[in-house]
Write a protein that binds this DNA or RNA. Sequence first.
RNA 1: GAUUCCGUAGCUCAGUCGGUAGAGCAUUACACUUUUAAUGUAAGGGUCCCGGGUUCGAGUCCCGGCGGAAUCACCA
Length: 514
Amino acid sequence: MSERHLSEQEIIRRQKLQQLQELNINPYPPESFEINVTAKDIKENYERDKLNYKNISIAGRILSIRDMGKAAFAVIQDATEKIQLYIKRDEICPGEDKTLYDVVWKKLIDIGDIIGVNGYVFTTKTGEISIHVLTFKLLAKALKPLPVVKVDESGKVHDAVTDPEFRYRQRYVDLIINPHVKNIFIKRTKIIQSIREYFNNKGYLEVETPVLQPIPGGAAARPFITHHNALDIPLYLRIANELYLKRLIVGGFEGVYEFAKNFRNEGIDRTHNPEFTGLEIYVAYKDYLWMMEFTEQMIEKVVTDLYDTTDLEVEGKIINFKAPFKRMTIVDAIKEKINIDISLCSEHELRELCKKHHVEVDETMGKGKLIDELFSALCEKELIQPTFIMDYPIETSPLTKKHRNKPGFVERFELYINGQEIANAYTELNDPIDQYHRFEEQVKLKQKGDDEAMYMDYDFIRALEYGMPPTAGLGVGIDRLTMLLTNQHSIQEVIFFPQMRPEKISEPETETTS
RNA sequence: GAUUCCGUAGCUCAGUCGGUAGAGCAUUACACUUUUAAUGUAAGGGUCCCGGGUUCGAGUCCCGGCGGAAUCACCA
């Protein structure tokens, strides 16, 4: 066991812990502390209904203390809000013994400690709704000092902890001291709840499908690989759940969806985390045109549930989420930019176009990929208002049904908002023979060295051979959608514990064991 | 993976030309019965991210590493 390096303040707090125990105060009591009110409730309703707040019980974490001789003020924060406490020595210590105030409160209670209090609500002479404390109880002693963030009269925040490394590694502290952070995550949950409600109201079934998959399918991405000892086989963490949900459509469910943690073994940046949340939904007897309406209504509902409006300011731009959204084919989107119909271009001409517009290409890229690159470079960033981009080239969409009247293209759309891809949807390919050939193409790509090409999945083909009804499917990146709807620039701000390099724990010098 | 920037007290940050390590908050002690960035007086607190190099002397300059951020690349 190595001795942990403790700061001066940490040593003092450990000494206080001992002193508390010597006073027969358990710093970590086991029993429940019953509360009957929240800080938010008090702040919102006390003025209207003062009689209801004569005998309250509330618990929270101490954020600041202002001792003033024989009385003191403190601020505690519960799950909802901050609220001020007023503590008078002679009220919490009515007898001769003033230990509880002079020693326990003034010496042994610190910022960061969690306490429960009983008392009544009143308004101070400066007009702040506060709790007049009659009794208090220590519920948990904090051994590490909490960073103190102060807000002045004008609302300006002083000494805010903004260091991203500190905030992400110690998110628990971030959530305590940066109230807006908590709000982002509450919104994230509301977004998911809103979507779930939308689906459930339509009678679709929420399901669970495997995270550990013998063949990682449904997307083009490098998987994480692991090993199952008992079966002695490799297993992959899912990169998508698409193929399993479609198997359920084959099985007779007519609407299934899943909020799925997916895993991709790729770079980490502002918009990518190795594990992220995808939502996928499949609805039988529908096509991608139906799915477009379904999607825009879903997005409009989510925004309205969240903000009671359909206009949102994101990165300084007003985005209007009122359905219907603009629709445009990928061919038209590019034509609008460079006045060339790329559906008429040969692969060689596409390559020249890419060069002309400084789009990096390599030999392995086919027609579909080149069109995709052109679109990304020329159009993507400018799609600020919600826009469906439709009818993608077939090469990059191996799970999508061929377009009903455009050879070489598929029935696929992506929804772009604020220059970001938010959703991706198809009329699903349900022709088992076509699907088999598409997989074969992917396998060829894999053999050429494309480590993101898809694997052949014979069981999925077998499922399709039993017959899958015509189906529309949709995938939504929940993290990206949350970023958009909470106006956050980085995915790390919408994931509680974003992936980071492990902290290096400096080991003190130890004797090498033989 | 490339480039740029950053790393100093528990937190937020200064640190000049290379010359004994600084402030505010927090902490400790004392005072103070309606304060609110409470106040007043005093005190303690440092692996200047790590390792080399240059130098009489390095928080500061150079090289390497570690960690983080941004941009780019990659990720349809």
